[in-house]
Amino acid sequence: MTATADADVLPALRAKVRSAAHPESTPCSHPDTVLAERADGTVVRHADTVAKAHAPDTDPAHLTLRLTAATSHPDILLAPLRPTPAPLHGRLVTFWPYGTPVDPDTPEAAPWEEAAMLLARLHRQPPPRGLPPMRGPAKAAQAIARLRATAPHHPATDRILRAWHTLPAWARAEAPMPDSTTLCHGDLHLGQLVRHPAPLGPWRLIDVDDLGVGVPAWDLARPAAWFACGLLHPDAWTRFLTAYQRADGPAVPANGDPWPVLDVPARALTVQSAALAIAKSTAAGLPLDDAQRSVVDACDRMGGIPPELAGPFPK
């Protein structure tokens, strides 16, 4: 896509979301709010309607299948307003109802139990026929490629790559995942939950870009990694894991040690986070913050010890 076409996306998306929210002849005082503006997705809200322009390389057939999954499970995933994407300046656009996001300023109210129960229910649903693999491992591999391209000489890069190469091929997106039947979100974190109807409706999962079939433990891997790196309080981790197990989530055993299943995905998410931290800090010319240093330090510890499937990776 040309730079001109890319620059045209935001104003065109504003017009699209306004027309989707109400007829153009209707008097309107609602402002447009840009919720995200990145290379992999631009999101604009107008009144109670949200429009998302997906990444330029998004496969239309795969995105349509992901929309089908969301439409089929509206009690788990936020359902789109339209069943198929629309073209816009070389991008695909989807339309959604607005939902209230998690408040980052009240971490004590974070919906860990609700997120876990939604995941457990998602993992038990049959995926649409032809749904592609969930994109978790592919995104981790993209983060490593970005690290190699932007910060090959950073002092932490070799340590991160050593940790990366301890992972099995499937976790590096170099081989098929060992599970090809379980419906997965692919990129679970608290930013992927909203209340709908806003402001206090039930919680729903959002963002279907990485939805697909694969290893369900990947959806638990980010909070597991945060816990293992000391970034998530043990009580929050216990609440999340216990709620998932009580909801009959298939990713981990209902009883006993979950780490034989979680270890590899948690390591992969830690490496991904560290790679992005170095790439972003290098591009911005800024030092790492405390959380970024924690994931980089974890990679240093992981690099010398292959996954032993015995517990949270070495302290």
Rank of each mutant, 00 (worst) to 15 (best):
T2E: 12
S29D: 15
P31W: 02
T33R: 13
R38N: 12
R45M: 05
R45A: 04
V50N: 04
A53E: 12
A55Q: 08
H62M: 06
L67Q: 14
L78N: 12
A79Q: 11
R82C: 01
P87H: 01
H89N: 14
G90K: 04
T94C: 01
W96A: 05
E114V: 05
Q125S: 15
G130P: 14
L131Y: 08
P132N: 00
G136N: 15
A140W: 10
A143K: 14
A145Q: 15
A149D: 15
P152K: 06
H154C: 09
T157M: 06
L161F: 07
L167S: 05
P176T: 06
P176E: 06
L188W: 13
H189Y: 14
G191E: 09
H196L: 11
P197G: 09
L211W: 04
V215E: 15
W226P: 00
C229Y: 00
H233C: 03
W237I: 01
D248P: 07
P250M: 02
N255C: 06
D257K: 10
L262N: 09
A275G: 00
A277D: 13
A279Y: 05
A283G: 07
G285Y: 03
D290N: 07
S294P: 00
C299W: 01
I305G: 01
K315S: 11
K315A: 15
